[in-house]
Design a protein around this nucleic acid. Structure first.
Length: 897
RNA sequence: GCGCGCGUAGCUCAGCGGUAGAGCACUACCUUGACAUGGUAGGGGUCACAGGUUCGAUCCCUGUCGCGCGCACCA
């Protein structure tokens, strides 16, 4: 016996365990050897993270696809795993050390620190996996991987070495985005442009020839002036032409720097003269690069590039003594003050400008000249662009392809080295002279070094680790066992679909494309489904600081995983953010209850599954009708999931279950289930059980827990079922739609609805039973007799009789062209009834007029397609007929008055 | 500056060349034998605005206004 209400919390854990024990999510199950493979790799969450709403959406959608395909008989692999998330994880552990007032990572040293991170991983690493299970994610957990486990590390090593040997990874000295808080280089993608209020300082640099005259430059970062190598002006700028080639004095540093001509300065902007600090500004670096062979740069220290800030945030020896070792903002203050004292500050403007910030540290990024490792992304991007152009990989929705192309076609070298400890250490060793040996192991590097130097030399390994996204880029093949030739790799690569958020198209999708194509010679996935962000109900991004974060686990506790999943699916329309309100989750929790109660109804009425029940054998009109409706629903849901229209799939299932099955089939089946006709009763029980089974299958990808539970409980002859719904066969129905059944049930529905409506309008109390008189032909009479009991119950009728004309003073309804009369003279106000009918007539007139207008339009008649023309004509006929019937009814009413 | 998207019922959103839909909220009524986490009925929309294409535009095109996002630049 089912409980009255569905209690998700009592069932979900048990069901999930049952799936795992049955190996329901295992790929390569023996019975599916011949089945077509279907694979998805999970976007690996941070191993020490916890489930947020974005994960909930992302994994719900994947789970829908995976469960759907599993039921369709495919050999499904949903490959799970977690990411080591270099910067994020290292930051968390460092914060912990600080909170516990323990020594910092530099004091404790690399090995001890890494030990701590591994401990933290061991401690918190299972959290997110368990949370995914609570959501119902049907991953093959046997195959769970971690980006820093042994196998994946081997893949990283091999990729790095091979790309290096192919010249696609190289070390280069160029400007990087330096994060002064985390003390590491980061990639362009990790830089966020933030609009801030700031100031623009205008400084006067005295001319060397004539110190009473000045050249004015402007800057937003005064402290960088100490590293200036030149002042640039536009070659056509008449104001400065005479100064080109002359020297100016760099104040405070007391160096002479040249005035050079370059296209870069915009004469319209500021003073038109730009200070060139090549080691601290990307544009200035370009200017320097163009002029690097000129004497005036060559003579300068360090090839003309003066680095002010070392990784320890100290200023180096090129910096005047009094500013050394200062924090950059402190240096800024002092330099401005000192220049002011010298009378060299021309003006200070208040401005709003965009300043680069580190996405993790949230501090201002410093362009900084260092040696880093780069991937030649431009070369790798070419086949990755081609693969999407040729349709080997498809983006859904398609418009994301443009974003992908824009970025890929302008791709910059990818800086992959990070000055962190947590991650894959770069497999590069240096000899005493700085010569680099990139190799799969230290031994291999030593051997190479010996060959090079002719003797054993002490080698030191590169301290840096790789960008986290480097290992993520290999995920679709590294998780399948690459570089080994595993059966899984052969079977499941390329994967079928990738489901991810638009925010990591560049970080992840693009890079998987590049690496997959390079190393596997095939795209990593055929479809990329890009979903939107989950926002709060007002449309704001969820963030801890705003306090508007919704916790998926709390929602699961409160409403059940199925309700949350269904909500996310129902709202996942392509190309639109999800604004999530708890009222929606509550609504779909109610839906779960509704399904539960429909099953309870079936149970109470002895609707048990009949083995071998053939839906085509149904004789009863009602059963034929619901079977046809089921077929329609199956078709809609199937097509929608196939095309990644999750919201349409969820909507179709919802409407079918609630508005069709519960609202009408259940109600109309009651007389059959309690009636005397044994054959009809048995068929209805079997049909109800059959349709309920189909419902539970259709909903399973969306609501796996409740459906699995109902499947289990509602076995044949009431026995608990041994098989798992997760492995059951997806509904396949055909040839069940029946026009005659549709028409009869449609009439019943229309009649009941019309009577209910008029009862309300006439203020007839719900408990009052009223008589109905049908003025109808033989066919309708037969129908009415067949549906007598249901009609009486659902429309609250005392009796149904038949007559040739309506009794005097009755309320007259037009249902499918025939009059249904409610003899209510004395009960209802006849004047009100007259008004009601007059309104009906007016409505008909409006309809007729609208159609007439169209039909009078020659162009319409000449150009509209045949079927539209027919439709309109039919509408006119219908409205006309309706109108005349109602007019007759009005006459009769008047006659009665 | 370049690109993408969005303005549809009070709210959150579907839809999309052929008479506007859902959920929530609202109003009224109903404890009828699956379900009050329910049922029944109802109110509520010049589909942002202006042009154009079309027999016909909420839907396609152009522009305007408003909002959001991404990328690039800013001495």
């Amino acid at each position: 016996m089912l409980e009255k209400n569905y209690q998700p919390s009592e069932i979900e854990n048990r069901i999930y365990r049952a799936w795992e024990e049955a190996g329901a999510f295992d790929c390569m199950r023996p019975e599916r050897k011949a089945a077509a493979p279907y694979s998805i790799v999970i976007p690996p969450p941070n191993v020490t993270g916890s489930l947020h709403m974005g994960h909930a959406l992302n994994n719900t959608l994947q789970d829908i696809l995976v469960r759907f395909e599993r039921m369709r008989g495919r050999d499904v692999l949903w490959q799970p795993g977690t990411d080591h998330a270099g910067i994020a994880t290292q930051m968390v552990v460092e914060r912990q050390l600080m909170e516990h007032q323990e020594p910092g990572r530099r004091e404790m040293g690399r090995d001890a620190f890494l030990k701590r991170v591994w401990e933290w991983k061991a401690e918190s690493g299972g959290t997110i996996v368990n949370q995914l299970k609570r959501l119902g994610a049907s991953c093959d957990w046997r195959r769970e991987r971690f980006t820093m486990d042994e196998g994946l590390s081997r893949a990283v090593l091999k990729v790095f070495v091979e790309l290096y040997r192919a010249g696609l990874i190289y070390k280069d000295k160029r400007l990087v985005n330096w994060d002064p808080k985390l003390l590491t280089a980061i990639s362009d993608l990790e830089v966020q442009q933030v609009e801030v209020k700031g100031q623009m300082w205008h400084f006067r640099y005295p001319l060397a020839d004539d110190p009473t005259k000045f050249l004015t430059v402007a800057t937003t970062r005064p402290e960088t002036m100490l590293g200036d190598g030149a002042v640039a002006v536009h070659p056509d700028d008449e104001r400065y032409k005479h100064l080109v080639g002359k020297l100016v004095t760099l104040p405070l540093a007391n160096r002479l720097i040249p005035v050079i001509a370059d296209e870069y300065p915009d004469p319209e902007k500021g003073s038109g003269a730009v200070k060139i600090t090549a080691a601290h500004d990307f544009n200035d670096f370009e200017v320097w690069y163009r002029h690097r062979e000129q004497d005036y740069f060559r003579k300068q220290l360090n090839g003309g590039l003066i680095n002010l800030f070392t990784p320890e945030a100290k200023m180096n020896e090129n910096c005047p003594e009094q500013y050394r070792g200062l924090d950059r903002f402190e240096a800024r203050k002092r330099i401005v003050a000192d220049l002011e004292a010298l009378g060299l500050v021309d003006q200070i403007e208040k401005i709003t400008h965009v300043v680069p910030h580190g996405d993790r540290s949230n501090v201002v990024i410093e362009p900084y000249l260092t040696d880093q490792w780069y991937v030649d992304a431009k070369t790798l991007a070419k086949p990755a662009i081609e693969a999407v152009k040729s349709g080997k990989t498809n983006f859904v929705p398609k418009n994301w392809e443009k974003t992908y192309f824009d970025w890929m076609e302008n791709i910059q070298p990818w800086c992959v080295s990070r000055q962190l400890w947590w991650g894959h250490q770069i497999p590069a060793w240096y000899g005493p002279d700085g010569k680099v040996f990139v190799a799969l192991s230290e031994d291999e590097a030593k051997a190479e070094a010996k060959k090079h130097y002719g003797r054993d030399e002490k080698l030191t390994r590169d301290e840096d680790v790789l960008d986290t996204w480097f290992s993520s880029a290999l995920w679709p093949f590294s998780t399948l066992g690459w570089p080994d030739k595993t059966p899984e790799l052969a079977r499941f690569y390329p994967t079928t679909a990738l489901v991810t958020g638009f925010d990591i198209i560049f970080f992840w999708v693009a890079r998987m494309m590049m690496m997959g194509l390079h190393f596997m010679k095939e795209v990593p996935f055929k479809d990329v489904y890009i979903h939107a962000l989950v926002r709060d109900e007002k449309g704001a991004k969820m963030s801890k600081s705003k306090g508007n974060v919704m916790d998926p686990l709390e929602l699961i506790d409160q409403y059940g995983a199925d309700a949350l999943r269904f909500t996310l699916a129902a709202m996942a329309a392509q190309g639109r953010d999800i604004k999530l309100a708890t009222s929606r989750v509550e609504g779909y929790r109610n839906f779960a209850t509704k399904i539960w109660n429909a099953a309870r109804f079936a149970e109470m009425n002895g609707a048990k599954r009949v083995a071998g029940f053939d839906p085509k054998s149904a004789k009863e009109t009602l059963n034929k009708w619901i079977l046809g409706e089921t077929e329609k629903a199956v078709r809609e849901v199937t097509e929608a999931i196939e095309t990644y229209k999750f919201n349409e799939a969820a909507g179709a299932a919802y409407r079918f279950v609630w508005s069709v099955f519960c609202d009408w089939y259940v109600e109309l089946s009651k007389p059959l289930l309690t009636g005397a006709d044994g054959a009809a009763k048995a068929e209805t029980q079997a049909t109800a059980a059959f349709v309920l089974d189909e419902i539970v299958k259709l909903l399973h990808p969306f609501m796996p827990f409740i459906t699995e539970e109902l499947w289990r409980v509602k076995g044949e002859e009431g026995e608990a079922r041994k098989s798992m719904l997760a492995l059951a066969e997806w509904p396949k129905l055909a040839g069940l739609e029946d026009a005659k059944a549709d028409s009869e049930i449609g009439w019943v529905v229309d009649l009941i609805t019309a009577i209910r409506s008029v009862r309300m309008e006439m203020n007839i109390a719900g408990g009052v039973q009223i008589p109905l008189q049908l003025i109808a032909g033989a066919a309708t009479k037969a129908r009415a007799e067949r549906w007598m009991e249901a009609l009486k119950r659902l429309a609250r009728l005392s009796e149904i009789t038949f007559a040739d004309s309506p009794p005097k003073g009755s309320v007259q309804l037009l249902v499918r062209g025939e009059i249904a009369a409610l003899p209510l003279a004395g009960v209802v106000d006849l004047a009100a009834e007259r008004t009601r009918l007059e309104k009906e007539v007016a409505k008909c007139d409006a309809d007729i007029e609208r159609v007439d207008k169209k039909l009078e339009n020659r162009d319409f008649v000449a150009r509209a397609p045949e079927e539209i023309l027919e439709l309109e004509k039919e509408r006119r006929r219908d409205a006309q007929e309706r109108k005349s019937k109602i007019l007759e009814a009005l006459e009769r009413l008047k006659g009665a008055a």
